[in-house]
């Protein structure tokens, strides 16, 4: 599954970040790398950003970009 499919309250673990170029680089620069745990705080319908807790801080990521992150659910 990808981060896009995660639900509010899920904690997921990043398996891999797909894609390439600036967007991928940006996502990874902000700490979404292999093995990191992500807590999904808020997801709003209709193209709104995802609000996540990663590495102890809050981040909002566009749904479209969340598609690039493969994850597995851990809780």
């Amino acid at each position: 599954m990808t981060l896009k499919d995660a639900r509010v309250g899920d904690t997921v673990k990043v398996v891999r970040v797909e894609g390439e170029g600036p967007i991928k680089r940006r996502i990874m620069d902000l700490g979404i790398t292999k093995g990191v745990e992500i807590y999904v705080r808020k997801v709003a319908p209709l193209g709104d950003p995802f609000e996540l807790t990663v590495r102890g801080y809050e981040l909002s990521v566009r749904k479209e970009d969340a598609k690039m992150v493969s994850v597995e659910k851990i809780s």
């Binding site: 891999r16 790398t33 102890g56």
Partner: peptide, 26 residues
């Protein structure tokens, strides 16, 4: 992985290893 992905991941892995992960009330 591709090369810049490798570099980023390994930098973060290194950082995680030197920071004591005891963030209270996370």
């Amino acid at each position: 992985d591709d090369s810049d992905g490798i570099i980023i991941s390994e930098r973060y892995d290194y950082v995680t290893s030197i920071v004591d992960k005891k963030m209270p009330g996370k």
